[in-house]
Design a protein around this nucleic acid. Structure first.
Lengths: 337, 337
DNA sequence: GGCATTCTTGTTAGCGCTAACAAGAATGAA
DNA sequence: TTCATTCTTGTTAGCGCTAACAAGAATGCC
């Protein structure tokens, strides 16, 4: 009722006129300022409801210099891990009244990152979350001299930036310990690209746990996270037949290994045991179902956003959050006969 | 360089003073207005470069009533299809100077959609792209009385809204025709949930192609897109052993079937041929590699954004875009002996 | 009751930008 | 030259909001 004259949405002024107060009083009600009398507040709220008033974000941003926008920047944003991290960020952001703007990178070079960061600063983002877990990423960001909080996912605390990570090394050690506990002595590892922080951490965990068990760590092959690369590594492993167990850097490469082994007549787990990493939903339906290390990416994303919020709103210092992974045992591992 | 006194970023006024012109002239240069003399333009551009001026998005939005923000709203945004569609949207958006804001829904009820839409209108989004390909989605949106363009992904043209879709029915027919061509007569179908537009279209295509070949369409089971549901359906099919071929609604369910068949001793493709849908990267590494129907989700997303742009900028009417899928033949199908 | 303190509301200015109008400079046609 | 037309630049107003200050009303304390 009353929205017949103009197409323009109501603004503070309209609500104020409707409630018989000043626009500033309406602003106070909208922003929950304490010093507004009960009766006035109720009158204003009624007017807001009747006119269907909604605060104009652009005007508010202009004066407060806060956009309520968090930029999330990442490579491989369609992959299981990053995609679910993004979802976690989004969920926590929306609950806290923030908006999430995304930028997907084709590659993770410094220019590419700088472009995406500028895209966000142009938008006036209040903070930036980075899901580009490469070695050089943190340095690139440091060179950019940003004046908004940054949270780097998958990296520890790196100087000025906050970090949120799953404890990759620990996950790797648990996986390898599981294999060692089953009597395996020749345990290989298919790692992700060595310049990925996560890949390096998992390889390091594998190495440490082997060392703790007094075993050799000479069976390391480097893949690129894809099933295709896992397939190629699997062919190599099947040809040599040295390893009785393989700790694979992620589930997709494990899928590739499974395929290569199947073609080469190597049975899993009878001939070779396999452990993956991530526990994407499909892993339980591989042939055979994959023993793997579960990471809770959504939780990771939510925690990232929480950290971001305390930095923006309370001016908190940067810090690090570590989430624990969990071994999920299925049928791709079995004790050595 | 003059950036010593204040922390505040430069604005039009600062550039104007630096170049010895009015702020409006700087605005003209920034917005590529034609009537600026060459010499002035160069002087202004030099000042912009020197001061590192960047236009303030909030101020611009306030006065133009354009935010350059596109809201993308969807369920299952971490799944292969939606995630890649989102990436395509993002890519086209960034190239065109737009920002992409996301809202992930836990479920696709009317309230949930209305909340997300309001989230975007609060943000001042210039358009909304919807990846919630349920039956009722379009009706829900129609009830919302939006005054920004809407593009619905995975639906045909529905009245006021634009649609962009892969031709699901055609993909299904090609898949089934492939099986018929191999001599199969009893061809089952595992569909997605029947209230999903895509699931219904694929089932319809399966039915039509069977009818064209004079075959019975009584072997239909409904899953929920997950590998888990494919596994359950696979167990049922393995128990009855009626079908010699199955057209599966997506690759993940096909993975579940593969697992169930493997456990039940049903060999693929010797005993049963299998065709999936989507061609996610892993499908080539299933055991056996999966024959499937490829959808180019990124392309779909890019086309969505293009449509959105012509609607926003040229006031174009709503329309529909259809992208063709493509059959990828691998090792999970073979001629009936 | 008188005065200081708090609570409540209003007034004014300005965030940085673009639209609309205004005006001066340059150009061309007669 | 003269006047109309175009090109170029500047001036003013205002988008919708919040911060800062101001002022009046209500309250407390002695």
């Amino acid at each position: 009722m009353g929205n017949d004259s103009e197409r323009r949405p109501p603004r503070l002024e309209d609500v104020a006129a409707h409630a018989g107060v000043s626009h500033q009083t309406v602003s106070r009600v909208v922003n929950n300022h304490p010093n507004v009398s009960k009766s006035t507040r109720e009158r204003v709220e009624a007017a807001i409801a009747e006119l269907g008033y909604r605060r104009n974000t652009a005007a508010r941003s202009l004066v407060t210099r806060r956009s309520q926008i968090i930029g999330v920047l990442g490579t491989e944003l369609a992959q299981y891990g990053p995609a679910n991290t993004l979802l976690g960020v989004q969920q926590a952001a929306r609950e806290a009244g923030y908006f999430v703007s995304i930028a997907a990178l084709k590659e993770s070079g410094a220019n590419s990152i700088a472009d995406a960061v500028r895209y966000f600063t142009d938008q006036g983002a209040d903070g930036i979350i980075v899901i580009v877990p490469h070695d050089g990423t943190v340095q690139t960001l440091e060179g950019l001299n940003l004046d908004v909080p940054v949270v780097v996912v998958g990296a520890g605390s790196h100087g000025r930036f906050s970090g949120a990570m799953v404890d990759q090394k620990r996950g790797a050690r648990v996986a390898v310990a599981h294999l060692v506990g089953q009597g395996h002595r020749r345990i290989g590892h298919i790692s992700g690209p060595r310049d990925w922080i996560d890949a390096a951490a998992r390889a390091e965990g594998w190495r440490e746990e082997l060392a703790a068990a007094g075993l050799a760590d000479d069976l390391l092959l480097e893949g690129d996270w894809s099933a295709a690369s896992g397939y190629r590594m699997g062919q190599e492993l099947a040809a040599t037949r040295i390893a009785t167990a393989v700790f694979v850097g992620n589930d997709q490469m494990a899928l590739g290994l499974l395929r290569a082994f199947s073609e080469a007549g190597v049975r899993v787990p009878q001939d070779v045991s396999l452990v993956g990493f991530d526990d994407q939903p499909e892993a339980a339906y591989f042939t055979p179902p994959l023993t793997t290390v579960r990471q809770d990416f959504e939780e990771l994303g939510r925690r990232c956003m929480d950290m971001m919020r305390t930095q923006i709103e309370d001016g908190a210092a940067s810090s690090t959050i570590v989430v624990d992974p969990e071994l999920v045992v299925r049928a791709s591992t079995s004790p050595l006969p």
